[in-house]
Design a protein around this nucleic acid. Structure first.
Lengths: 188, 188
DNA sequence: TGTAATGATTAAGGTATCTTAAGAAATGAA
DNA sequence: TTCATTTCTTAAGATACCTTAATCATTACA
């Protein structure tokens, strides 16, 4: 698991073993079972979560009471409620495990201390955030541009295993369509 | 103008005058007239642009040949083609001045050198990127959740002056609807 | 000042997607 | 294995938004 972190970190910035050790000592491993909540709406999110294995979703409840999934995340992805984490406001989203999921947790204060002692870590997080921004922008563009059918095709091309691991109605929620309509689309 | 930069930078991280001077010496001021392109689609974007005054838009051409506006930006906002800047790939978007616009330009290589000599600057950019991510996520959520009418109302509440400074059809493009339909909405 | 170019509105008909409701299929618990 | 719960499908009617095309209003420029 330390290897997994190290490999992942060194993909972007080179860290020494000592630095990895220091960072690793601040991380807490926690195992969530299927349906467990990693973060609940309304709570202030003071952590970043790094997924070692498993699958989680982020979602919020819209004004009609429907769950809207904004993100799925698997191994080697970071999740958090960014707005809550940065602004210390109650989170609009919940994060929930869809399978048994191993997660490394880093606390905001610890992270900021580490940024001061290991500036390269701040660089890593700058880069990670840039990549998240690019991904978010791309999702935006794709979703605004494409019709639902193309979005679905796009999803099964890029993440074929999601279709296996996630119920249809969650896929529909992520694609921003109703399960009924997705069912319709799948026929054609 | 240096004051403007300093005030803006110090909003997030405290810099000494000497640091501001060093950063400022790497910035290039350029004035763009209305309709001038700051960045053209297809070019690799090697800069970040900080708007001192004026108004710009980012947009791309969709597969039907229509311009899709992804962002408006005014004073104290950063713009770039993030994907192109990070990955050194041809930019999918163009950036164009909608009014006479003063812009401070920073080159990618210079910026990375500055990150090494002034780690606090890297912190500033981490924070800026986090804020951009939050804004982008919020735009996503709002746009996926709200009907067009609410999006329009939301826009005129948050940025009433845009309506004055930007033609209707660009507002429509930003809201992801046709100008005809926006016209319809405005009646009610 | 007049004319061309640009931007905004209106209206008719079409399509994508939603809502509701019911039934079918799959999954999980006892 | 059976029953209850969860998930998926089908279909009819409703609505948001688009397309096209014509007209009207405004701005820019010769």
């Amino acid at each position: 698991m330390k290897t997994q972190i190290k490999t992942y970190f060194n993909r972007y910035v080179e860290f020494s073993d000592a630095e990895i050790d220091e960072i690793f000592s601040k991380l807490t491993l926690k195992i969530f079972q299927k349906k467990d909540y990693i973060l609940r709406e309304g709570k202030i999110c003071t952590n970043r979560y790094f997924i070692i294995s498993g699958l989680v979703r982020s979602f919020y409840i819209d004004n009609k009471g429907n769950e809207k999934i904004t993100q799925f995340a698997i191994q080697n992805w970071w999740v958090t409620s960014m707005e809550s984490f940065i602004k210390k406001t109650p989170s609009a989203i919940s994060i929930q495990a869809l399978e048994k999921t191993e997660i490394l947790i880093i606390d905001k204060d610890e992270l900021e201390k580490l940024f001061l002692s290991i500036p390269k870590l701040e660089r890593l997080f700058r880069i990670i955030t840039e990549n998240m921004l690019i991904a978010t922008q791309r999702k935006n563009d794709i979703y605004l541009q494409m019709k639902s059918k193309s979005r679905y095709d796009d999803l099964i091309n890029h993440f074929p295993d999601f279709i296996q691991r996630v119920p249809q109605y969650m896929i529909a929620s992520y694609l921003e369509i109703t399960p009924e309509y997705l069912s319709e689309l799948r026929k054609s």
